[in-house]
Design a binder for these strands. Structure first.
Lengths: 103, 103
DNA sequence: GCTTATCATAAGTCATGGTTTATGATTATG
DNA sequence: CATAATCATAAACCATGACTTATGATAAGC
C-alpha cells in the first residue's frame, strides 16, 4: 500500500493535532481526552477515528473504556514519506542553486 | 516567531501539495503551473499565496510573469518543527515501552 | 438485574476554504 | 499607442468536514 498523505491530513486540524499530542504525552482514554479538550466526547471519538485510520494511533480496550496509544507502524510510514519528500525538495533546491552558479 | 503549523496546513490540501511538488521539481511561472493543473489560474494564484505565507515558496518577478521557487527559510522552519514533534512522539513511545517492561 | 460509566455512530447544523467567473494592474509585443 | 499576455484580487458558490445533540451498545459497580 502506498502511503497517501493520510497522516499529514490528519495532523492538519488543530484539535486533532492536540489529541495526537496528548496521546503522545501518555496513553489516554476517550473520557480523559474529552476532559482536557474544549469539544464534546463524540467530537473526540471522531478525531480518534481519523487518527486511527491514518495509523497514527491505535485503540486498546480496557474494560468499558478505550485506551489510545501511539501506533509506531503508521508513524514510521509517515516518517518515511516526510523524509522522501524532504529529500526531493532539498535535492531540487540544490540543483537550482548549482544551475544559477553555472552562469 | 514561533512556527505555527502553517507549513503542514498548507501541504494538507492535495492540489496545493501538487503545486509545491511541481515547484520543487523546478521553478515555474503561474501560467506554467496552470497548464499542468486541473484548476483555473486564480485557484493556482490563491494556492501560491498560502504557500508563500507559509514561507514554503517565494516569488521572483520576471517581466510580466512571476517565477515561483522553493523558499529554504520556511522549509527549514518546517523541518525543525517536524523533527521536534517527531522526537517528542518517539520519546513518549519509548517511555511507554519502558514502563510496560518494568511490570 | 438495574443503574452508571464509557464509547461509537447517526443525523443535522454551520463555518471554513477551495473553486469559479469577472476584472483590474502590470509588462511585453507589434 | 494599442493589443496581448501574465498575474492578483474580489465576489459568489458550494462541497467538505468539524462540530453539536441524540441514542444505542457494552462493561463495570451496587
Amino acid at each position: 500500500m502506498v502511503y497517501d498523505y493520510a497522516g499529514m491530513m490528519a495532523l492538519a486540524d488543530p484539535t486533532r493535532r492536540k489529541v495526537f499530542e496528548l496521546i503522545a504525552d501518555r496513553p489516554r482514554s476517550v473520557i480523559d481526552l474529552t476532559r482536557v479538550l474544549p469539544v464534546s466526547q463524540p467530537a473526540v471519538s471522531q478525531h480518534l477515528k481519523v487518527l486511527k485510520e491514518a495509523r497514527l494511533v491505535r485503540a486498546e480496550p480496557k474494560g468499558a473504556s478505550n485506551i489510545y496509544h501511539l501506533d509506531p507502524h503508521g508513524l514510521g510510514e509517515m516518517r518515511a514519506w516526510l523524509d522522501r519528500m524532504w529529500g526531493d525538495a532539498l535535492d531540487a533546491f540544490k540543483r537550482e542553486v548549482d544551475n544559477s552558479k553555472e552562469k
